[in-house]
Design a protein around this nucleic acid. Structure first.
Lengths: 253, 253
DNA sequence: CGCGGAATTGAAAATACTCAAAATTAGTGG
DNA sequence: CCACTAATTTTGAGTATTTTCAATTCCGCG
């Protein structure tokens, strides 16, 4: 894969390489809250960056665990495969988020991670990160927060899968994406779905047909606009109410 | 609450107090793999033990986070409450397991934890534990494994809720309990359910009626025996096959 | 322009839910 | 220890949400 800026005269590629300080995600990612000195220590252990094409796999279940991965740009999905070969998507990850934490417990990856579009990650050798924890307590604390956040995120998904109807699940999904894009400085009410309808359905415990019907219904109600994968929330208040369970759902058409 | 052994002449209560080395769970709990010296350092930071009666709450959502809790004996459930007041049980915990890790990210508890029977926990002040991490790398590594394990556990529940039918969900639930009791030296095929049918249903994303019907069906098929909350797996191989999805489910009676 | 994957839509079917009633169990006080 | 009451569980019948299966449309790409 070629470098996107192969011959720029003003940018020193050497210093940019793997530099957290220059990364647009450093306020969301692992270096959050670190001072310059500690950031440079983190920089020193960060491995190579890795580019992935759409549909390319970052890691696979049962592969030995060596690195965590911070997403620089792009989107990923993670999914588990059960004995019967069916998959369950456990999350969609975007820039600034960390991949691979589920692998720490067994020293093997517990799921697959696949790029939803052309993406780039920073490889973070976990062994070296652990060494650094002893010297940078702020980093350790932040790492614990990130892991804990992943636990609460998954608990929220359990709540979704365990006792919400289809209409509410989908609303929660949209509100969640909206909030995450907003946190990254993008529009809260207009964004592109990076995953297929099938992926959405799988994640939400629904079929692709259900997702399609939900989109149609939302459209008909005037709550949103869809053009291929471009979604615009026309009535974000309503969608948030649906997500919160405040608003009653009408039965599926 | 009274001490169970108020006047034993041979046991020195003082040294037993909060001693991980003497705890039957120390091979499963936080001190796993620590040498005697490090165990005693951990002991020094462990706060008081806390007894809870059945249905008593250990902590509540939004409460400020101060401690993790290691279960010495007894069982707990953790659940989230959504805006509409409905609850979703996110896990059942038993002796040797750690409670409260979801609170690290926001410095507030993210769920409620309630004792399912009379139980006892060790209070672990998280601030002091963090200090100790700097001095006992083994402890830190094990802590990361425990958090990661919680992440993978929840991913397994997502798989269960997202694409298994009722019969398989219930089989997975039984197999999981069985394995955990076996790991604690108890019978793998005969154990007591510490939670109500309603709790099981809530956890599995099913109604109490469905759980009741599943139990009846399993009984009729000769796969298990139930007497109140005492369950005996008569055909563990079959139940494991159901859980794995190897065996096809018959439709609900 | 046409092929193929993805998405939409419709109709029928199935799984699990709701509501209701009966049965069993647990808890309490005499 | 027993009787009584409350709570939990079981069972049944009818219903609803979502799935499955099938057909069609849409869209990207060669």
């Amino acid at each position: 894969m070629n470098d996107l800026i192969p011959s720029s005269p003003v940018i020193n590629i050497g210093t940019l390489k793997s530099s957290c300080a220059n990364c647009s995600m450093h306020q969301l990612c692992l270096p959050m809250g670190l001072d310059d000195n500690d950031i440079s220590r983190l920089d020193q252990i960060i491995g190579r960056r890795r580019r992935l094409a759409r549909d390319e796999r970052l890691y696979q279940m049962d592969e030995p665990f060596r690195n965590l991965y911070a997403i620089r740009f792009g989107h990923f999905k993670t999914y588990q495969v059960n004995a019967a070969g069916e998959q369950q998507i456990t999350g969609f990850q975007m820039a600034g988020e960390l991949l691979g934490m589920d692998a720490i417990s067994a020293d093997r990856h517990h799921c697959d991670a696949v790029a939803l579009e052309d993406s780039e990650v920073c490889e973070i050798p976990f062994g070296r990160l652990e060494e650094l924890f002893g010297h940078v307590p702020t980093l350790l604390r932040h790492f614990h927060r990130i892991m804990s956040q992943e636990i609460t995120r998954e608990q929220n998904v359990m709540l979704l899968l365990g006792n919400m109807r289809a209409e509410q699940r989908f609303a929660v999904f949209l509100v969640n994406l909206s909030a995450r894009y907003a946190a990254r400085g993008y529009s809260a009410n207009s964004f592109q779905l990076r995953m297929s309808r099938e992926d959405i359905g799988n994640y939400l415990g629904l079929t692709i047909e259900s997702i399609s019907r939900l989109l149609s219904r939302y459209k008909k109600q005037g709550w949103l606009k869809v053009d291929k994968r471009e979604v615009t929330l026309l009535d974000p208040v309503m969608i948030k109410a649906l997500a919160a369970g405040t608003e009653q759902c009408s039965p599926m058409a």
